[in-house]
């Protein structure tokens, strides 16, 4: 295995695009190193992007924030601006692993590891986050967070491409977001079900727009349009929330595994979507 720690993104892309064999980008390493140690992956090249200064920055942009790929969960959690703007995204990212893992794990890494249970992803999807990708020759493209993961462990990134940053857009007035997950313990587990909700209210208090995303209930994070529609135009009365929960459950196509059953995930997806919607609603009302 070769270890490279370039100091610019162009160098990183250059190294990656010229490499043969199995390559891995190392940000926080909390997934990659575990996979290496367990023999799940034996990379020929690891490119550490933490020596690229810009990757560590959180910068304001058009009323939102651009978060570098090497920004750790701990660093994000300490940023009052992002926390105030998209509390659901920050909370979701902070749920990843322990304090120790937070010291290293990154939101971008969580996204690119492409686990269906990734905590930050439903929140990023509902926040409408935009992912900035750099490719060979410095070519840049931007895609919604929703389009990064294509299946368990699979992304839409091409050979030589690296995610440089994620733009958390400006948040419309009277809007809020929230993310909840179910785990058997209070910490240290992988989500059995995750639910992110972002919504915007009309001045009259009815819901103008909503997004509901679910994690760990399908091969990728699901954006559940019928669940969102169930609350648009409502004041999130019980019936609307019931409909949202039912739609969320109906959208699930989970598996039985060591972490949960199909029956359990399906039901709890509705429960959590409902609870997250209530929190997002409270935040939108301020």
């Amino acid at each position: 295995m070769r270890y490279e720690a370039p100091s610019t993104i162009d160098q990183a892309v250059e190294i990656l695009s010229q490499a043969d064999g199995i390559t891995r980008v190392l940000a926080g390493g909390t997934d990659v190193i575990v996979q290496m140690r367990s023999g799940m992956v034996e990379p020929d090249l690891v490119v550490d992007i933490k020596r690229i200064d810009a990757m560590h920055e959180i910068t304001p942009e058009d009323g939102g924030f651009r978060v570098g790929a090497a920004v750790s969960g701990a660093q994000l959690g300490e940023h009052d601006g992002v926390k105030a703007l998209w509390p659901g995204v920050v909370e979701a990212t902070e749920l990843i692993g322990s304090t120790q893992v937070q010291g290293r794990a990154t939101m971008v890494g969580n996204l690119c590891n492409a686990s269906p249970a990734a905590d930050s992803v439903p929140a990023l999807v509902t926040a409408g986050a935009i992912v900035s990708i750099v490719g060979p020759g410095g070519a840049r493209r931007e895609i919604p967070a929703y389009e990064v993961t294509t299946g368990p462990g699979k992304t839409s990134l091409e050979k030589g491409e690296i995610v440089e940053s994620i733009l958390l857009p400006a948040r419309p007035a009277r809007s809020g977001d929230a993310y909840l997950r179910f785990i058997p313990r209070t910490e240290m587990d992988i989500a059995v079900v995750g639910a992110g909700v972002a919504l915007t209210l009309h001045p009259d208090g009815t819901c103008a727009e909503a997004k509901v995303a679910l994690g760990a209930v399908a091969e990728v994070v699901l954006l559940v349009e019928p669940a969102a529609s169930a609350i648009v135009g409502t004041r999130l009365e019980d019936e609307a929330l019931d409909a949202l929960a039912a739609a969320a459950s109906a959208a699930c196509r989970p598996i039985d595994d060591k972490r949960g059953t199909i029956e359990f995930r399906t039901k709890v997806a509705g429960v959590l979507a409902r609870r997250a919607a209530v929190i997002a609603h409270d935040r939108a009302r301020g």
């Binding site: 058997p184 313990r185 910490e187 240290m188 587990d189 992988i190 972490r259």
Partner: peptide
């Protein structure tokens, strides 16, 4: 990770 002994919290 998946053999879940109680954690402090």
């Amino acid at each position: 990770l998946d053999y879940r002994v109680p954690v402090c919290s």
